[in-house]
Nucleic acid binder design. Structure first.
Length: 625
RNA sequence: GCCCUCGUAGUUUAGCUUGGACAGAACGUCGGUUUCCUAAACCGAAUAUCCCAGGUUCAAAUCCUGGCGAGGGCACCA
C-alpha cells in the first residue's frame, strides 16, 4: 500500500508553480479557514508581497491563479481582495485514493527508520500509578505510536529509580516500624503507596531517629549485596509489576526497563566522569562555597554541581551518564534479559546484573534522537544534561530532547473530598507523600461503573455481561487517555473527579460512538467494498471526508515533525464530527447502485482513517457500544 | 531577586511556530429533528474589551517591549 504523502507532493507542486521555494514555505502562505467565500483554501502570497499596492496585488494574484488552473487536484481558482481562492477537484482526489486504502492507511515512511528512544512513565517504584502519571505515560505512548506510524524506529524505555528515598521509606516502614509487608486483597502498589509510604512520612515528623534508619537503608541499597538491598529489590520488582499492570490496562507498553541501581553497578558515572574530565566539559572548583565539587558551567552562568565535595555523584550527574548511554557516547553498556511477554505480545526487556544475560538482545541505545517525557519542573536540570552532552560530543549536535509538560493538579473540590482543605485558590498540587492524589486504577474503575450503567441503558442489542464489561472498560480507558493528550501539554490540567465522570460529549465517547456507527453500517451492509465511481453531486459532508482522508498522511507527518499530539486530537474530533454530519444527511445501505458503492467505500475509508488516528491517542476502536 | 510557562464566550478550549477577509469548537442554556444504517447523534439561536498598555506593519489573538494575574523552577535532594 502507498505510504506516499500525496497531499504534501501536491503542495510542493503548487509551490514550484507559483515560485515558492518549498511546500513548507507555502504552508505559511495558505489559509484554510474560510467562512465567507466557501473555498477550500486561499493563497495570501500576493497580499504578502505587494504591501498596499492594490494594482500590483491584483496582478500578482491573477498570475498565481492562472498558473494553478490545470493542476490535477484543483477544480477552479478565483481572485478576491488579493486572495487566490481555490477549490479542490474531489473526483481527482477520490480517484487517487481508490486502491491505496490499506488497513494501515496513514502510515508513512517520513521517519526513514531513524532510531528514536522515548523514555516515559518512570514512576518511583514505591506506589500506585496516579492520575498525574497517566499524563506522562499517555503522552509518551502516543508519541511512540505517532512516530512508529510516521516511519521511525522507536525504542520505548521506562527508567526506574530503585535507589531513592521513596523506596527506602517503604523498607523503613516494614523493617523498622513493623508494618505488614502486604495486605490481603489490596494490590501491592496501592497498599505500599496509600498506607505504608504515607504512614512512614508522617512518622518522620514525630520520631527523628527514623530518619537515620532511612539513611541506613539508602546506604545498604546503594552498596547492594546484602539483605536489605535484596528485600528492596524484591519490593521494587513487585510494585513495578503492579504498575505495569495498570499501564497494560491503559494500553501502554515498553521495550526496556532500566534501573538506576544498574547505572551505579555498571559504574556508568565513573566512566562518564573520566570522559567528561578528559574532554574538559567539567571543572573542579578550587575555592568558594563549592570548593572540592566538580561542576558544569551552564550557558546561563550557573555552575551546576555534579559531584559533591565528598566525591559522590548527584542526580544530574547520573542523568548525564544515562543520556550519554542513550546516544552511544558512553564507553559502556548494560547487560539485558527478557523479563516477560506483555499483553500486546511484545517482549519486555530489562537491564540485569546476572552473568548469564542474553547476548542476543535488540540494540537499545546508539539512537539518533532521544525524547525524555518528564514534567516541566525538571526543565532546568534537563537543560544542563543537554548542554553537557552537546559539549562532550564536540561540535556535533546531539538530538537530546526534554519533552516537557505541565502537571495535573486537583481541583479544590476534589482535594476537599480527599480531606484536604488548603486549596482555596482553586487547585491543589498532587503529592504522593501527603496522600494528595487520585489513583489511576480507582478512577478508571469509577468511570467504568458510570459508563457501564449508561451503556446498558442506551444499548438496545442484547449483549452479554462480559461484552458490556469490555465496552465499558475500553471506553473508560479511551476517555482517560484522550483527556490527557487532547490539550496543549504546556497547560496545567485541573482534574475534578465529578467533572471527569460526566461523560461529556465530543470526547473519546464521541469518537468511539462514531467508530461503532461506522462498524455498524458496514456490518449491516454485509457487502464487499468495491472500487467506486465518483458521483457528480457530492455534498459538503462527502467532500470534507474525502479531503480529510486525502490529507491524513500529511497530518501524521506534521504531527510527527512537531511532536504535537493536539494536531491529531483536533483532526480526530473534526473528522468524527464530519462523519456524523454525513451520516445524518445521507443514507448508505439504502442508497442505490453506484451511489451505494461510493458511500460504502467512503464509510470504510473513513473508518480506517478514524481508527488509525484515534489509536495514536490510545482511543480503542469499538464495533458496537 | 533572577529564569521559564500560561492568560481567548459562564466553563473546557482551537487558532499563535509561518501576521491576512466576520476568532473556530465543545459543555452548559434556549428551540427543533426519530415511518431511514445506533438520538452517546443531527440542525438552529444567544453568548468573546482574544488580561491591560504601548510599539512594529498596508494588516496583530498571532511578532516586539512594558505591566498585571496564575503556576513552576533557581539544593553539595531525587
Amino acid at each position: 500500500m502507498s505510504k506516499k504523502n500525496t497531499f504534501g507532493e501536491f503542495l510542493s507542486e503548487i509551490a514550484s508553480r507559483i515560485g515558492v521555494n518549498s511546500s513548507e514555505e507555502l504552508r505559511s502562505l495558505i489559509k484554510t479557514q474560510d467562512y465567507k467565500y466557501n473555498c477550500d483554501f486561499s493563497i495570501t502570497k500576493a497580499l504578502r508581497e505587494n504591501k498596499a499596492d492594490k494594482d500590483a496585488i491584483k496582478k500578482s494574484a491573477e498570475s498565481i491563479s492562472s498558473s494553478l488552473k490545470d493542476l490535477e487536484f484543483i477544480e477552479k481558482t478565483e481572485v478576491v481582495n488579493g486572495y487566490v481562492n481555490c477549490w479542490y477537484n474531489y473526483k481527482a482526489i477520490m480517484n487517487r485514493l481508490v486502491g491505496s486504502m490499506g488497513e494501515d492507511y496513514g502510515s508513512t515512511d517520513y521517519g526513514a527508520k531513524k532510531r528514536v528512544l522515548i523514555e516515559h512513565t518512570s514512576v518511583n517504584p514505591n506506589k500506585a500509578i496516579h492520575i498525574g502519571h497517566t499524563r506522562n505515560s499517555s503522552i509518551g505512548d502516543s508519541l511512540s505510536r505517532l512516530l512508529r506510524l510516521a516511519g521511525y524506529d522507536v525504542i520505548v524505555t521506562n527508567y526506574i529509580d530503585d535507589t531513592g528515598a521513596q523506596v527506602a521509606d517503604n523498607v523503613v516502614g516494614i523493617k523498622f516500624m513493623g508494618l505488614p509487608p502486604r495486605k490481603e486483597g489490596v494490590k501491592i502498589d496501592h497498599y505500599l503507596g496509600d498506607e505504608v509510604y504515607i504512614t512512614v512520612n508522617d512518622a518522620y515528623a514525630k520520631d527523628s531517629s527514623l530518619m537515620s534508619k532511612r539513611s541506613l537503608v539508602l546506604k545498604a541499597i546503594e552498596a547492594g549485596d546484602n539483605d536489605i538491598a535484596l528485600e528492596a529489590k524484591e519490593m521494587v520488582d513487585e510494585v513495578l509489576r503492579a504498575q505495569l499492570d495498570t499501564m497494560s490496562r491503559l494500553g501502554v507498553f515498553y521495550d526496556l526497563v532500566n534501573y538506576e541501581s544498574h547505572i551505579l553497578a555498571y559504574k556508568f558515572w565513573e566512566i562518564a566522569f573520566e570522559q567528561l574530565k578528559k574532554a574538559g566539559v567539567i571543572d573542579l572548583e578550587s575555592e568558594g562555597e563549592k570548593k572540592g565539587c566538580w561542576v558544569f558551567q551552564a550557558s546561563n552562568g550557573d555552575k551546576k554541581i555534579l559531584t559533591r565535595s565528598d566525591g559522590t555523584v548527584v542526580y544530574a550527574g547520573k542523568d548525564i551518564a544515562y543520556a550519554m548511554w542513550k546516544h552511544g557516547l558512553l564507553n559502556g553498556d548494560f547487560r539485558y534479559k527478557e523479563w516477560f511477554t506483555q499483553k500486546n505480545g511484545e517482549e519486555l526487556w530489562a537491564t540485569t546484573l546476572d552473568k548469564e544475560s542474553e547476548t542476543n538482545h535488540p540494540m537499545f541505545n546508539h539512537v539518533q534522537r532521544s525524547i525524555s517525557v518528564i514534567d516541566i519542573r525538571q526543565s532546568y536540570e534537563q537543560n544542563v544534561v543537554k548542554e553537557a552532552i552537546n559539549k562532550l560530543s564536540g561540535g556535533e549536535t546531539v538530538d537530546y530532547m526534554h519533552y516537557d509538560y505541565a502537571v495535573v493538579a486537583l481541583s479544590s473540590n476534589t482535594a476537599k473530598k480527599l480531606g484536604f482543605n488548603g486549596a482555596d485558590k482553586g487547585v491543589m498540587q498532587m503529592s504522593g507523600r501527603k496522600g494528595v492524589y487520585i489513583n489511576a486504577d480507582d478512577f478508571i474503575d469509577k468511570l467504568k461503573g458510570v459508563i457501564l450503567e449508561e451503556t446498558k441503558k442506551k444499548n438496545t442489542n442484547d449483549l452479554s455481561e462480559e461484552e458490556y464489561e469490555k465496552i465499558a472498560e475500553d471506553i473508560a480507558v479511551s476517555t482517560l487517555r484522550y483527556e490527557m493528550v487532547r490539550t496543549d501539554p504546556k497547560k496545567t490540567i485541573v482534574f475534578d473527579v465529578d467533572e471527569a465522570i460526566k461523560l461529556e460529549s465530543k470526547g473519546a465517547i464521541y469518537i468511539d460512538y462514531t467508530l461503532s456507527r461506522m462498524a455498524g453500517i458496514l456490518r449491516n451492509a454485509a457487502e464487499d467494498i468495491q472500487s467506486p465511481e465518483c458521483p457528480d453531486d457530492l455534498d459538503e459532508s462527502e467532500k470534507k471526508l474525502l479531503f480529510n482522508i486525502f490529507r491524513f498522511q500529511d497530518i501524521v507527518e506534521s504531527a510527527a515533525k512537531s511532536l504535537d499530539l493536539t494536531i491529531i486530537s483536533n483532526f480526530v474530533s473534526e473528522f468524527a464530527s464530519d462523519f456524523n454530519a454525513f451520516y445524518a444527511k445521507n443514507q448508505v445501505i439504502k442508497a442505490e447502485g453506484k451511489r451505494k458503492t461510493f458511500r460504502l467505500w467512503l464509510v470504510d475509508s473513513s473508518r480506517k482513517v478514524l481508527k488509525n488516528a484515534a489509536s495514536i491517542l490510545g482511543v480503542l476502536p469499538l464495533e458496537r457500544m
